[in-house]
Amino acid sequence: MLTKRPFAMLALYYYPGNASLLPHMMLREIRVPFDMRLVDRDQNAQKSDEYLKLNPNGRIPVLVDGDLVLFETSAIALHLVDRFPEAGLAPSFGTKERAEFYKWMVHLTNTPQAEYRAWFYPHEHVSDEAAIPAAQKAAEQRLYRMFDVISEQLGDKTWLLGDRFSAADLFLFMLIRWGRAMPRPPRTLPNLNALAERVLARPAVQAALEAEGLKAPIF
């Protein structure tokens, strides 16, 4: 059943498997109507004049919510949990659980998500092309350490917040997925693999993956 509340039409600018996957999964969890608008990276559409009016950084995603145009993945995610609190994708305001949720959302965007940039695009981080392999290897090693820390913090809990599922778990799932081609993928850490499997089993996540045409291996 769709969320019964007044809302403006939502539109998500996305590219399959990109950072837009997080808000896409969230919108499916919320079960509110929204438009999906493909930004064709294969045609460099994220650098088009039209798209740069929405996000001057030329990155994906963008969420349009009525007259609000919002970029930055974590900002979009936090807006959605506030916009649709009845969906339960974050704990209540003012609670210690909400503070833990903020911690994970900020950590995931500032550490592994940011570090993936250096791993996927090492040429952006060097002035000498000969240094590209070393730059990617260094990013890889930093990512290993980051996921080791996340694994240690998760421990044997079901979700990052313990027994409660949240948007932070969707975020971590996306980041685990991004590392599937690494020499030591995040899924090799048993508790991260188990969390990813639990997220993957959710109908909303399955619907988002299907809509984006994302096939196995998912992570």
Rank of each mutant, 00 (worst) to 15 (best):
L2D: 12
T3G: 10
T3E: 07
K4W: 15
Y15L: 03
N18H: 14
L21Q: 05
L22D: 05
R28L: 03
R28A: 10
R31D: 15
R31S: 15
P33M: 03
F34Y: 15
M36I: 14
V39T: 08
A45E: 13
A45C: 08
D49F: 00
E50R: 07
N57V: 13
L63F: 06
E72F: 10
T73M: 04
T73V: 06
I76Y: 02
L78Y: 08
L78N: 12
R83T: 05
F84N: 01
G88K: 02
G94Q: 01
R98N: 04
Y102R: 00
K103P: 01
H107L: 11
Q113V: 09
Q113T: 12
R117Q: 11
W119Y: 13
P122L: 02
H123P: 11
H125V: 13
S127N: 14
D128I: 08
A130L: 07
A131E: 09
P133V: 07
A134E: 06
A135N: 08
Q136C: 02
K137H: 15
E140H: 15
R142S: 08
L143Y: 08
D148Y: 07
V149C: 10
V149Q: 10
E152G: 14
E152C: 12
E152Y: 12
L154I: 11
T158W: 00
L160C: 01
A167W: 03
A168C: 06
A168G: 06
D169P: 00
F171A: 06
W178P: 00
G179W: 08
P186H: 15
R187W: 05
R198I: 12
A201S: 05
P203R: 09
K215N: 05
P217F: 09
